[in-house]
Amino acid sequence: MSPNSTRLTGRTALVTGSTGGLGVTIAHALAADGAVVVVTGRDVARGESVVAGIRADGASAHFVAADLGGADEQAIDGLAQRAAEAASAGIDILVNNAAKLLLPEPTATLSAGEVAEAFTVNVVAPMLLTGRLASAMAARGSGSVVNIGSITGLRGTAGSAVYDATKASVHSLTRSWAAEYGPSGVRVNAVAPGPIATERAAEFAEHIAPALARVPSRRMSTPQEVAAAVVFLASDDAANIQGAVLSVDGGWAAT
């Protein structure tokens, strides 16, 4: 995929959790639209492979290793600083994509550790990182934050209480951050995907199949469809969109 647009030329984007799954597709899509992309994740080899692929397409990318599983102020500060240094520029676009996925499980069998880990990765890490980077964007007078939520944060799913709660928190944070940073020129929005046809989809197939039978589109979203929504919200095409949660779910939320 070679660069096909210039909407994001001159901007630098940091995509968390972009060494696999949806994050890789988002990183490629932002780069194809002209952004310099900072890829982050725990696996150095996979991260460097993603960067090599983006560069092979004629776009620009860098890799910064990061583990958000034990997110704290020092780790987040380090990621924000190393990302800016790698790209030799401030971060103009932040995509909070990294997430802890949980297989459906009854609430009664969940451990405190599982709950804490999910909230650390899905809520605490993006909160701390947005606090650092959106504040810097506000000081410059412009920027965009796109959070990856979920359709499960908009409607209940049996056996998915913790994940649903973390994504509902992401949606709430999106609205709060829009109110907080919007007056300083920083837009904050979210994308709420339904099931996505990634390599991990097979793990959830038996749980997803009954719901897909009721979804108007009768299928999962592709990673490219979700990434296109992220690029749109990050670009000036969405210049007056603030605090929105854009569903990319084939109509799941409508049923």
Rank of each mutant, 00 (worst) to 15 (best):
M1T: 08
M1K: 07
P3N: 11
N4Y: 12
S5D: 15
S5Q: 12
R7L: 13
R7Y: 03
L8H: 01
G10K: 10
G10Q: 10
G10H: 06
R11V: 02
T16E: 06
S18A: 10
L22Q: 05
G23K: 05
G23Y: 01
V24Y: 04
H28I: 12
H28P: 04
H28W: 11
A29D: 10
V39E: 09
G41S: 09
G41D: 13
A45F: 05
A45Q: 13
R46V: 01
G47Y: 07
G53V: 12
R55Q: 07
R55W: 01
A59E: 10
A61P: 03
A61S: 06
H62L: 12
A65K: 15
A66M: 13
D72L: 09
E73F: 04
E73H: 05
A75M: 10
I76N: 00
D77L: 14
A83F: 05
E85S: 04
I93K: 03
L94K: 01
N97D: 03
N97V: 06
A98F: 10
A98W: 13
A99S: 06
L101K: 09
L102S: 04
L102V: 07
P106Y: 06
T107I: 15
A112C: 11
E114P: 00
E117R: 09
A118H: 02
F119Y: 08
V121C: 00
A125L: 11
P126E: 07
L128I: 08
L128T: 02
L129P: 00
A134C: 09
A134W: 09
S135V: 08
A136D: 14
M137C: 05
M137D: 06
A138L: 13
S142E: 15
G143I: 12
S144V: 13
V146E: 10
N147Y: 05
G149S: 14
T152I: 15
T152Q: 11
T152M: 12
T157S: 15
T157V: 15
A161C: 08
Y163Q: 12
A165S: 11
K167A: 01
S169M: 13
H171G: 02
R175T: 14
W177K: 05
Y181T: 05
P183R: 04
V186P: 02
R187E: 06
R187L: 08
A190Y: 03
V191R: 03
P195Q: 09
F204E: 04
E206K: 12
A209R: 12
P210K: 11
V215D: 00
S217P: 02
S217D: 12
R219D: 04
S221H: 08
P223Y: 03
P223V: 11
Q224I: 12
Q224P: 03
Q224Y: 02
A228P: 02
V230H: 01
V231Q: 05
F232R: 13
L233N: 01
S235E: 04
S235N: 04
D237T: 07
N240R: 14
L246G: 00
V248Y: 00
D249K: 05
D249I: 10
G251E: 08
A253W: 14
T255N: 09
